[in-house]
Design a protein around this nucleic acid. Structure first.
Length: 656
DNA sequence: CTGGGGAGGGGGCCC
DNA sequence: TGGGCCCCCTCCCCA
């Protein structure tokens, strides 16, 4: 009827003035038009084409079109108006259920349920929550007609196999990185967008890999380490117009719910989708068990998840006790878990402060064995975490009453304690000596000001930090294997946050919008920087020519121009005090130690390095302010000479 | 064509 | 865990 009415003007307009001649254009209707349109839209959704909204449901991502959502659901309509990223309450709708709802929106059909699929009752509840009246009506009708609600609740499907083959027809993220197969619907020349899933959905595994660690289920390179997950369930963005995407690890291997053994708690805090589902709808436990059975989920029919989890737990415990270093990828996964647990266990600072390093633990353990300590060896040859516990619980020292003050270890006799003290590495002694030579900034305990401010020193590179967590974070940079791989491109990162941020670029998420021009950014800092363009603020001033810049990096690039002449040689001279200040600051305060030492070790490098130039003035100011010294005074006090940097002595050259 | 500035974007890393 | 900052690369525009 609408078509006829809408086309009426057209018929009138095309009718010849005389009324006769060519036949009158009658309004016609193509019955399959709406169906074809929906099919096209659904195809586009599957390919991610023109999708302008991402819906996050717990650990799963769905891409869709705002118009379609708005036309189907009053609730979603209210959301998509303001946001490109929707975060649905997974207590109300689980990822599996939402997939069915989204399918219904795009196809007008409600997928049949098979064992493990969300029940019709759950779909009804979700449809009510999302305000999809057509689906609500359909669910009610189905429930009334079939009268098999009890079976549904029990996980039994009266419908047989799924007609639309959700599992088979949903390749999801086919590729993580090079070498992986491309999606079947992708043309060879087409940019490979790993987000182009058939259902426009991505899943983030909350299981942190239990079944993923099964050989044969997933290529080893896809075995994302457990702690690498993006937590989808946390953090909301500061911008009201958007939401960040805290994700848990995106699981590239399956289009459906993340695989979780019953009762398996995600380390990231993301509970099982199906546990949530069952709890939300008071489903009996067997529903979840049926849903997540790995044999249902993965090609190759892996063993049941629960024994798998147990085996993994045993393996993990074994490795934990053995203190095995990361080796194979699976081992790395275990090592990462271990590291996570160690971090949570509030391990003490390492090396030079009352602490126990892992290798020291082993040494300590061997010492105990040698001396017949009351503490017997632990499985695998080390005491592992127990040793750490011993070291910090005086009452647990047992007969080891002679305690080494610096490291807190106990020994049964003074002779053994003396032997232990002598065994402290030369490096430590050298450092202490170095600190004592540092002169006026030392306290009587032999600690430099830098050590006081940053007492947690990396045993690998000598960098110092204010707190142990930062030190642990830093130490990951020394790991041969970066623990947080991107599940889309495979790039690995040393910090989870960096990987999360990287993922945002894959997903095209730019939560921070400029109010003035509408430009969006992936980071708040970028927006702040960008806003200076509108405000005209240029806080970065060139100390040489007075030029001002809105962005620091452009000042740095500008300084390059000042520093390096046409022949590449330096153009500027800098006062000795500046060098002295940098040396003082680097050595005593631990600020940019490596960089300052590097800069000072070679004057030419220093002069050609804008980073050093830029850092000198703030460093000098900092030093003057905090130590109550003038630059000249500090320079006079320090004088020319070798810079003691860590356990190395670096010659310093005067800029003249 | 080239150099310089402006600006977007990504990774590293400390707090 | 996310924010913030630093550093780098890159592109674009303009003189």
């Amino acid at each position: 009827m609408r078509v006829r009415r809408d086309l009426g003007w057209l018929a009138e307009a095309t009718e010849p003035p005389g009324g006769g001649g060519s036949p009158v254009l009658e309004a016609m209707e193509m019955p399959s038009h709406s169906r074809q349109l929906l099919l096209q839209l659904n195809t586009q959704r599957a390919k991610g084409f023109l999708c302008d909204v991402i819906i996050v449901v717990q650990n799963a991502l769905f891409r869709a079109h705002k118009n379609i959502l708005a036309a189907s659901s009053a609730y979603l309509k209210s959301l998509v108006v303001h946001d490109n990223l929707l975060n649905l309450d997974h207590e109300m709708v689980s990822p599996g259920v939402f997939r069915l709802v989204l399918d219904f929106i795009y196809t007008g059909r409600l997928g049949e349920c098979e064992p493990g699929e969300p029940g019709l009752g759950a779909v009804l509840a979700a449809a009510s929550y999302l305000q999809v009246p057509a689906l609500v009506a359909l669910c009610k009708k189905k429930l009334k007609r079939t009268g098999k609600y009890c079976h549904l609740r029990g996980g039994y499907s009266p419908y047989g196999k799924m007609a639309r083959g959700l599992r088979a027809a949903t390749p999801v993220i086919q590729t993580c990185y090079s070498g992986a197969p491309r999606p079947v619907d992708m043309q060879p020349g087409e940019p490979h967008n790993p987000l182009s899933t058939q259902c426009g959905e991505l899943y983030a595994s909350a299981s942190q890999g239990t079944a993923l660690h099964q050989p044969g289920l997933c290529p080893p390179e896809r075995h994302c380490s457990p702690p690498c997950g993006l937590d989808l369930s946390k953090k909301s963005p500061p911008s009201p117009s958007s939401q960040l995407l805290p994700t848990d690890r995106l699981h590239p291997g399956d289009s459906r719910e993340p695989l979780l053994p019953p009762g398996h708690d995600s380390p990231s805090g993301s509970a099982s989708l199906l546990v949530n589902h069952s709890s939300a709808y008071k489903d009996p436990p067997q529903v979840a068990e049926g849903v997540i059975h790995p044999a249902e989920r993965f090609r190759g029919s892996p063993p049941c998840a629960e024994p798998l989890a147990r085996a993994e737990g045993r393996d993990f415990l074994y490795r934990w006790m053995k203190h095995e270093p990361p080796g194979s990828y699976l081992e790395e996964c275990e090592a990462e878990k271990e590291a996570e647990r160690e971090e949570k266990a509030e391990t003490p600072p390492q090396s030079r402060y009352p602490s126990i390093e892992s290798n020291e633990l082993e040494n300590d353990n061997s010492t105990s064995e040698d001396t017949g300590s009351s503490e017997g060896p632990s499985p695998g040859g080390t005491l592992g975490p127990y040793c750490s516990h011993l070291a910090y619980e005086p009452e647990s020292l047992g007969d080891n009453l002679y305690v080494c003050i610096p490291c807190g270890k106990g020994f049964p006799s003074s002779e053994q304690l003396n032997a232990h003290v002598e065994a402290h590495t030369e490096e430590e002694l050298y450092h202490k000596a170095a600190s004592e030579q540092a002169g006026p900034f030392l306290d009587k305990g032999g600690q430099s000001l830098g050590d006081i401010i940053r007492p947690y020193r990396c045993s690998s590179c000598d960098k110092a930090y204010k707190d142990p967590a930062t030190l642990r974070q830093h130490e990951k940079t020394h790991w041969l294997t970066r623990p947080y791989p991107c599940t889309i491109c495979g790039k690995k990162f040393t910090q989870r946050g960096t990987m999360t941020r990287h993922m945002r670029s894959h997903l095209g998420l730019k939560p921070f919008a400029c109010d003035a021009c509408g430009m969006r950014f992936t980071r708040q800092y970028r927006l702040t920087e960008h806003m200076r363009i509108h405000s005209g603020e240029k806080p970065y001033e060139c100390q040489v020519c007075g030029g001002k810049f809105a962005q620091q990096r452009n000042l740095i690039s500008h300084m390059k121009m000042h520093v390096a002449g046409a022949d590449g040689k330096s153009k500027l001279d800098f006062p000795e005090s500046v060098f002295a200040m940098a040396r003082l600051t680097a050595d005593q305060l631990g600020l940019k130690q490596e960089k300052a030492a590097e800069l000072l070790s070679h004057t030419s490098h220093f002069l050609s390095d804008p980073k050093g130039l830029e850092s000198l003035y703030p460093l000098a100011r900092f030093t003057a302010e905090h130590l109550g010294l003038s630059q000249e005074k500090a320079a006079e006090m320090l004088g020319p000479g070798p810079l003691l940097h860590g356990d190395r002595t670096i010659e310093c050259y005067s800029p003249t």
